[in-house]
Computed example of a mutant assay.
Amino acid sequence: MTRQRPAQAGFTLLEMLAAIMLVAFVGSLMVQMLIYLEKASQGIQRHTAAKQVRSLSLEWFTGAVEGLLAPEPSNDESRFRGDEFSFEGVSAGSLARRPGIPVAVAFRLENDPEQGYSALIYVRRLEDSRWALLQLPGVARFRYLDVRGRWHADWPPTPRLADSLPEAVSLQADSAEVFVLAAVMGPRTRPVADEL
Rank of each mutant, 00 (worst) to 15 (best):
D194A: 13
A132Y: 08
R188S: 13
L133K: 07
P187C: 01
R98G: 02
P156S: 12
D154C: 06
S91L: 03
L165H: 13
Q8Y: 08
W151V: 07
K39D: 07
F142D: 03
Q42G: 12
G82Q: 06
D146Q: 06
V31F: 11
M33D: 03
R46L: 13
G89I: 13
E15R: 02
Y144I: 07
V105D: 01
S28Y: 01
A183P: 03
D128V: 10
D112F: 06
V192K: 13
S55G: 13
V53M: 13
L69E: 15
T2Y: 04
E59C: 05
L56I: 01
V139T: 12
E84Y: 00
T48G: 01
M33R: 11
Q45S: 14
A104M: 02
I35A: 12
S118R: 03
I44T: 11
S57M: 07
G138W: 09
W60V: 08
S175R: 10
L109H: 05
W131F: 15
L133H: 06
W131I: 15
E110R: 12
S118G: 08
P156R: 12
S57L: 04
R97A: 11
A168N: 05
G43W: 03
W151A: 07
L165Q: 11
S94F: 04
E59Q: 15
F25Q: 02
A153C: 00
R5I: 04
V192A: 14
R98N: 02
A104C: 00
T12W: 06
R5P: 02
L120H: 08
A168P: 04
P166C: 07
L14M: 12
D76A: 15
R5N: 06
T62F: 09
V184K: 05
P191Q: 14
V90L: 06
L196C: 05
R143L: 12
L181S: 08
V123A: 09
G82A: 08
R141C: 01
D76M: 10
G116D: 10
S55A: 15
L109C: 02
V184G: 04
V169S: 02
N75S: 12
V123R: 14
E84D: 00
S57N: 05
A64M: 15
F142V: 05
R125G: 10
Q8S: 09
E72K: 13
S91P: 06
S164T: 15
I20Q: 08
L95K: 02
G10H: 03
S91Y: 04
S57Y: 07
W60P: 01
F61T: 07
M21F: 10
Q52G: 00
Q45P: 00
P159E: 10
